[in-house]
Simulated assay, not measured.
Amino acid sequence: MRILVTGGAGFIGSNFVRHILTAYPDDGVVVLDKLTYAGNVANLPPIAATPHLSFIQGDICDAEVVEHALTGCDAIVHFAAETHVDRSLLNAQDFIATNVQGTYTLLEAARKKDIQHFLYISTDEVYGNACSPEGVSRPSLETDTLRPLSPYAASKAGADMLAFSYWASYGLPVTITRCSNNYGPYQYPEKQLPLFIMNALEGRPLPIYGDGQHSRDWIHVCDHVEALAFILHQPAIRVAGEIFNIGAQEERSTLQNALTVLKILEKSDEQISFVQDRLGHVRRHAVDTTRIRLQLGWQSHISFTEGIRQTINWYQENTAWIESIKEKRNDFLNTALNLGVQRQ
């Protein structure tokens, strides 16, 4: 199988590429990535020395670039997206352009090229707060109404439904996955856990929004990409038109995560710094994974206890990667790293 992986130089995308090249050595991978602030070719294996891997720098909103990248491909795994809630609250325009228009461009190209599998990577953010139709808190089901609470989540929900419509209208073999919060190697440090790890290591406060009790289900990225590769290699007739939640049943609050990182690194709890809550902050994200477990027989296997230690070790051992990120002097990242400094 030859796979076009959009956003393959990002956090989850690059981990997916590494997994495919290891677990499915006969597959070929074409990475299409715009290389915005979070995309980094250093996240990928050495391209020149990896015969089954090729790289194209380009925008998924550019139809000509997409058509060229799809040449000879059998499947698309679509990661490319603007993903950070906080950034979307400041400027939603890029999220609408990339996440909605970019997905449309890919779907149209896939329809014309007769692609065999189109795997769209959505998010549990599309559900909003995890609850039943009656308002009772519980893990989200694939059949729940989408109630996104941020511009990022809304852009993903729009693209999610657009992808589904291409299966319903044109018979394009689309599969949608909605995963819980990821963590692990190569994650851009504006996100919660790498930010906590870096700040703990470098002696800065760990900023905690609101009361710190916002809860998320956390899955190690290696579990997530294993699930995606497993779905991709199912017969299309078995997964086309389906939506699968992916999660680990590892719900933890923001405050719990901060305290865990500090404990593992033997740092003082005094590095905790509570800051003003963000707008539209979802109280609980969690997904019910019954469908993927019963229908496909897949479930996660990396515990948070094991995974967070592995992740902390990775950031400790990959200081050159971290320094290369910091050298870019991204204003938003700098603000995120120092968010709690003035509020101790």
Results as ranks from 00 to 15, higher is better:
residue 144 D to V: 14
residue 148 P to F: 05
residue 145 T to A: 15
residue 149 L to D: 04
residue 149 L to N: 09
residue 173 P to S: 01
residue 156 K to A: 09
residue 143 T to W: 03
residue 156 K to W: 10
residue 155 S to C: 07
residue 182 N to G: 14
residue 172 L to E: 03
residue 148 P to H: 09
residue 183 Y to K: 11
residue 168 A to W: 00
residue 143 T to H: 03
residue 152 Y to G: 08
residue 167 W to E: 03
residue 147 R to L: 12
residue 155 S to Y: 06
residue 155 S to V: 04
residue 158 G to N: 06
residue 149 L to M: 15
residue 179 C to E: 00
residue 179 C to H: 03
residue 177 T to W: 04
residue 166 Y to E: 06
residue 146 L to D: 14
residue 164 F to W: 14
residue 179 C to V: 02
residue 149 L to R: 11
residue 142 E to A: 07
residue 177 T to F: 02
residue 156 K to R: 15
residue 177 T to A: 05
residue 174 V to K: 01
residue 162 L to A: 01
residue 176 I to P: 03
residue 170 Y to S: 05
residue 166 Y to M: 05
residue 172 L to D: 06
residue 170 Y to M: 04
residue 158 G to C: 12
residue 162 L to P: 00
residue 143 T to C: 05
residue 166 Y to K: 05
residue 180 S to I: 10
residue 146 L to H: 15
residue 152 Y to W: 10
residue 154 A to W: 02
residue 151 P to E: 10
residue 164 F to E: 15
residue 144 D to M: 13
residue 177 T to I: 14
residue 149 L to T: 12
residue 155 S to L: 05
residue 153 A to C: 11
residue 171 G to A: 09
residue 174 V to T: 02
residue 179 C to S: 07
residue 156 K to M: 13
residue 173 P to G: 04
residue 150 S to T: 13
residue 155 S to E: 07
residue 147 R to W: 08
residue 159 A to S: 13
residue 170 Y to K: 07
residue 163 A to H: 11
residue 173 P to C: 04
residue 147 R to V: 11
residue 160 D to R: 02
residue 146 L to R: 15
residue 155 S to A: 06
residue 173 P to Q: 03
residue 162 L to W: 00
residue 159 A to Q: 07
residue 170 Y to I: 00
residue 152 Y to H: 13
residue 173 P to Y: 01
residue 180 S to N: 10
residue 169 S to P: 00
residue 147 R to H: 11
residue 167 W to S: 01
residue 153 A to D: 11
residue 165 S to R: 15
residue 165 S to T: 14
residue 149 L to Y: 02
residue 180 S to P: 09
residue 148 P to D: 08
residue 179 C to A: 04
residue 162 L to E: 01
residue 175 T to A: 05
residue 153 A to S: 15
residue 155 S to R: 05
residue 141 L to D: 03
residue 143 T to D: 06
residue 151 P to Q: 09
residue 171 G to Q: 08
residue 178 R to K: 14
residue 145 T to V: 14
residue 160 D to T: 07
residue 142 E to S: 08
residue 180 S to C: 15
